[in-house]
Design a protein around this nucleic acid. Structure first.
Lengths: 221, 221
DNA sequence: CGGGATCCGTTACGATACTG
DNA sequence: CAGTATCGTAACGGATCCCG
């Protein structure tokens, strides 16, 4: 394995970049924040990455103690974040907040998928959750399922099926991005771009309040 | 000018990386957060960067609207951050907090200089400043001077000489890093690694309280 | 001396093909 | 599924040179 470039500077910023500054590395971490993933899951999510690069990056993440290999169900190997790796969360969130300031002008080769938004959504939700929000939602986006939970003043997002959700929201990834980019309003989204399946009456209000708070983070950042 | 690689992904994290993800870019921004700088200042601060790369990176930062060229004193050209560029502050701070988790094992080719710590110090100071802290300090590190101000519950750091400081603290860059790395304690630092010039009696206590709070941010992060 | 531009060898990246 | 191998191309790093 080739030894990657290092800045060899004392500054903590340079030390940080020596771990996560290589091309693709932060995007890999972004996906891993959604939960353990297989090599092929990551490869599909990171459109355009070469297999050998993904191998190198994962090896370095493991070597630096940010990720580890584990055994998954059917003799598959999974990659997951270590505690140290999870500490990139606020960093990645700040990066997303910064990146949201720019329009995606020019050609976009890949729209992305649900894994890619899990970190940002989770961090934002956690940041805005207030005491009287109380909802457990299942998020089904283009067939992929996520759990969004807001309870007791905090919130979390998990890239796994929700157990006994109060409300199930089905939508498409494109609609979700159009909403976050401001191309459609929350109202239009609620009317035309999603369908709700309500298990506990009234819970859709809590869900949409959470949505509104999260969107506010991006708009006023 | 060669066109840099772009991820061409819709995700805001990828959009952010398309602006600041190239090698050296975040370190250049780090230095610019300390204030306007000349080409040569930046080149000296970023040990090892090639002139052509610095040229390319600066051009891209200007093109993306993160920096601009201005005229300095003696017909020199200065680079300074735009409002948009200044929004990388929290991102860079989070990167520094993450990087501080790792030891600088292995050879370090460059110790750094005062510009390189200005962002981190400023962000940390702003974060911890409390209401009853009130001090204007001049920081003289290896001849370079900085102003550290804490007043009215907020704090700021500026890479320029302080006007009428309450206290002047002289130290070396190495001592400062040893302190932040935990190699020496705050007490040892105060005793043996710096000299104070007190203009307003008692202000050294406010200054060292601010120090203690800033260090706590790094230790418990 | 400040602010680059040019050239060139080296390294990393990207695409495709192939394997246990 | 989880990578390895190969190879052309693009980016980086160092040095030198240029111009005001």
């Amino acid at each position: 394995m080739a030894k990657p470039r290092s800045y060899k500077l004392l500054c903590p910023i340079a030390r940080g970049l020596d771990r996560v500054g290589d091309r693709w590395t932060l995007l890999i971490l972004r996906d891993l924040h959604a939960g353990p993933a297989r090599f092929t899951d990551l490869q599909r999510g990171l459109t355009g990455i070469a297999a050998n690069l993904l191998t190198e990056r994962l090896a370095k993440l493991v070597e630096d103690g940010l990720a580890r290999k584990t055994q998954g169900p059917h003799a598959t190997t999974l990659y997951e974040l270590t505690d140290l790796g999870r500490r990139t969360r606020t960093l990645i969130f700040e990066l997303a907040m910064f990146g949201a300031l720019f329009s995606s002008e020019g050609e976009v080769v890949d729209p992305g998928n649900l894994r890619t938004v899990a970190v940002t959504l989770g961090s934002a939700a956690e940041k805005v959750a207030v005491g009287d929000l109380n909802v457990v939602a299942s998020f089904v986006v283009d067939g992929e399922e996520m759990e969004v939970k807001a309870q007791g003043g905090t919130a979390s997002v998990s890239y796994s099926p929700a157990t006994d959700p109060d409300v199930v929201l089905r939508t498409s990834y494109n609609s979700l991005m159009a909403l976050s980019e401001g191309e459609i309003t929350e109202h239009v989204f609620a009317q035309n771009h999603c369908q709700l399946e309500l298990h506990v009456p009234g819970k859709e209000y809590d869900l949409f309040r959470l949505f509104a708070l999260i969107l506010a983070v991006f708009r006023t950042s």
